[in-house]
């Protein structure tokens, strides 16, 4: 292919007006070596296109739904949220138990205080009785 023709094709190529056939011509020219320096960039370009087409899908095709890691991640997050819910629930219960215990302790402490004070009062009243008895004896 003459260089002049190639240059015409290149102009068309940049305007996206080339046919597939013309593009194949360009591809063959630029990947065949002997590219003039001022068209060097096209050598890279077309070589890249040729290379890119050689990339193939090498995995075996499976027609069964595969358990992707994303799926398991989803289930893991579901499990984690359930776990969190349960732990919050149990934690709340435990906290309420603890709170009840605290209140019980406070109330029983108060009652004990009350009972000891009452006892003191009772003793004082008992003394009063003794006093009254002795007064009666004397008056008799």
């Amino acid at each position: 292919m003459e260089l002049a023709n190639i240059e015409i094709l290149i102009k068309k190529y940049l305007k996206a007006e080339t046919s597939l056939q013309e593009e194949t011509t360009l591809k063959n020219y630029f990947t065949g070596g002997n590219v003039p320096p001022h068209l060097q960039e096209y050598e890279y370009l077309f070589q890249y296109f040729v290379n890119a087409k050689q990339d193939t899908f090498t995995q075996t095709i499976s027609l069964k739904p595969k358990k992707s890691s994303k799926n398991s991640l989803k289930w893991f997050s579901v499990a984690a949220s359930i776990l969190l819910l349960i732990s919050v629930f149990i934690g709340k219960q435990e906290y309420e138990k603890y709170q009840a215990k605290k209140i019980y302790a406070q109330v029983s402490k108060g009652l004990k205080l009350l009972s000891t004070n009452l006892k003191k009062g009772e003793e004082a009243v008992a003394n009063l009785y003794v006093y009254e008895d002795s007064v009666k004896k004397i008056i008799k």
Binding site: L14, A16, Q40, Y42, Y44, L45
Partner: peptide, 19 residues
């Protein structure tokens, strides 16, 4: 065609610049 032309020109210009 318009998009393709734009893409080809962009790549070419960038290649020349880098080179």
């Amino acid at each position: 065609r318009v998009a393709l032309s734009r893409a080809r020109k962009t790549i070419r210009e960038a290649l020349i610049k880098k080179h």
